[in-house]
């Protein structure tokens, strides 16, 4: 997805991975770790939500 986002990104806009990459080019601060953690939590949150609503074990 990164390649797609990199080539097609709108003028003046960035997705989180691209923004993170730009950030890490100039600064190496734990802010990046915080951003990565947030995106991990969002993914887990999405899975948990679906698990509660439908139950993923039925999908396999």
């Amino acid at each position: 997805m990164y390649t797609i986002s990199l080539l097609l990104k709108p003028l003046g806009g960035n997705t989180l991975p691209l923004a993170l990459f730009d950030f890490l080019t100039y600064e190496f601060k734990p802010t990046a770790a915080a951003a990565a953690t947030l995106s991990i939590l969002l993914s887990i949150g999405g899975v948990a939500l679906v698990q509660r609503l439908v139950g993923l074990q039925r999908a396999f």
Partner: peptide, 22 residues
């Protein structure tokens, strides 16, 4: 504090919102 720093960075928050929306 790095979470606070993250939410104070306009470019990163914009990226997060864009990613969520997309």
């Amino acid at each position: 504090r790095w979470y606070i720093e993250f939410f104070n960075r306009q470019d990163l928050v914009d990226g997060l919102l864009m990613s969520l929306r997309i």
